[in-house]
Amino acid sequence: MWDHEIRAMASTHCILAASVFMATVLPAVLVPGFSVYGTHLLWIYCVSGTVVAVSVAVFWLLGITPPTKKHTVGYKLSRLFRSCLYFLLSCIFFHTVVVLYGAPLIDSALETFSFAVLLTSLTTLRCLCVLGPNVQAWIRVFSRHGAMSVWDTCLQITVACTLVGAWIGAFPLPLDWDRPWQVWPVSCSLGAMIGFLTGLVAAPAWIHYHRKQLTYKCK
């Protein structure tokens, strides 16, 4: 019964990965002087925008979001508003964490915030799409044995991969090689991106190979 879901997931992930790829390649072809290292902030905005647009569209079309009880316009608007608020809060949260990790407080605030936006659009946005602006559900999914559907497991895997990727991306920063990709935040955002892509591949594969062991509590 899960094959359908896994297939949907795999195709969603394919679309997401393709859009990330296009967001990197298309501007490089169309915009003169665009490069991942050189105009890194531009690349970050481009990729985050694309990921936001594509995931919102795809998840809305798929209809994963838990069905809401009310269908009034006001309620939907409030949900939208809350989602935006959470998005912003999550950006600020990531920014704070990155500063705590040692990023300069004032000097490169724009770079740090762009990196926070990228992380948010790779992690928090998926949560918003799948779970909706519902903190209780988030806490449930991200505590141990809290996954209640295939999508929850998928969310756990991709979010963990992205964050670990960004974490590992910080390793080359102290090396004195003077490479363009060692500039803050290039290596971290590349790490996050690679982690995200890995997560996109790994999540359906892992779920596919563990489908016998996976048992979910009924809602």
Partner: peptide, 27 residues
């Protein structure tokens, strides 16, 4: 470089440790 900047390694690890502990507490 990692020997020269060993403090960065420890600060990084310590931060991660605190976040992990934070997650444990939250949980």
């Amino acid at each position: 470089s990692f020997v020269e900047e060993e403090h960065q390694t420890w600060y990084f690890l310590l931060n991660t440790l605190c976040l992990a502990v934070f997650q444990d507490v939250c949980r």
